[in-house]
């Protein structure tokens, strides 16, 4: 039984089709990355799954227990970090639950500061903690690391991968970074022209090492599917590390 099932999902904005008849099954506990160029409809697809956007046609089966982390952390700047994490929770132990989640993302020390004093990576950790406390079945990530620097990004990918393993969530991550997709996901869904072009399985379990030699060909294949020309990649691979090569090519959108 899939955790999320999309059947013939279409979406149009003012008559312009963004998604056309998308069919997608996402198995419970799997990590699916959705890649696509800008305007491929990948964020719209995620927003439809999240219930923030209504599909123009089609059926969506999903769970109530879902959490979303957006590209911007979207913390309420006027609530302390811990109050952001526990925002909307009920019960007397809400603060303790929030503090435990902050421990899990490594930010216990920042519980009482204002969000505007956090760095981008720290803010994203808080946003993950806020998702964590809802005990979600499904975690939706909308280009969550797009605004972070390269090093912080790797850190955050590890954190998400480890949290996914520890909690057994179903994760759907929208990204334009094919390296990120192959590091973390079980399956990579390539979206183009509003439909699923191809689904590429990734062997092994994330988070994979960035210099894993199996990743570069996969990332290359994804880039080709996304229509990014890169003649000469094979010969370059001999002298450059695959990750560096792939990330130098990755800005697709």
């Amino acid at each position: 039984m899939p955790d999320i099932r999309l059947q013939h999902v279409s979406k149009a904005f003012d008559g312009t089709a963004v998604l056309r008849e998308v069919d997608l099954d996402i198995a419970e506990g799997s990590f699916v990355a959705i890649v696509g160029k800008s305007g491929s409809g990948k964020s719209t697809l995620l927003r439809i799954i999240a219930g923030l956007e209504k599909a123009s046609a089609g059926q969506i089966e999903t769970t109530d227990r879902l959490a979303v982390a957006f590209q911007e952390a979207r913390l309420l700047p006027w609530l302390s970090v811990v109050d952001n994490v526990s925002f909307g929770l009920e019960g007397r132990d809400r603060k303790k639950v929030a503090l435990d989640a902050l421990v899990e993302v490594g930010l216990r020390a920042k519980a009482d500061v204002w969000p505007l004093t956090l760095s981008g990576g720290q803010a994203q950790r808080v946003s993950l903690a806020r998702a964590l406390v809802r005990k979600p079945e499904v975690l939706l990530l909308d280009e969550p690391f797009g605004a972070l620097d390269a090093l912080t990004k790797l850190d955050m990918q590890n954190l998400v991968g480890e949290l996914w393993r520890a909690h057994g969530w179903t994760v759907v991550m929208v990204t334009h970074d094919v390296d990120e997709a192959v590091r973390l996901a079980d399956r990579v869904v390539v979206l183009g022209d509003g439909t699923v072009q191809e689904i590429v399985p990734v062997p092994g379990t994330g988070p994979r090492d960035p210099d894993d030699p199996a990743l570069a060909p996969l990332a290359g294949r994804l880039l080709r599917l996304l229509g990014v020309p890169f003649a000469g990649r094979r010969s370059l691979e001999l002298e450059t590390s695959p990750t560096r090569l792939a990330s130098s090519l990755s800005p697709v959108s």
Partner: peptide
């Protein structure tokens, strides 16, 4: 409106959206 979306995604009660997001944001 992105902050309001957070409240919607997490199914936060309307009164909390009104008080903790909209009112404090307007303060």
């Amino acid at each position: 409106s992105k902050l309001v979306e957070v409240g919607l995604v997490y199914r936060v009660p309307q009164r909390l959206i009104a008080s903790k997001i909209l009112f404090l944001g307007a303060l």
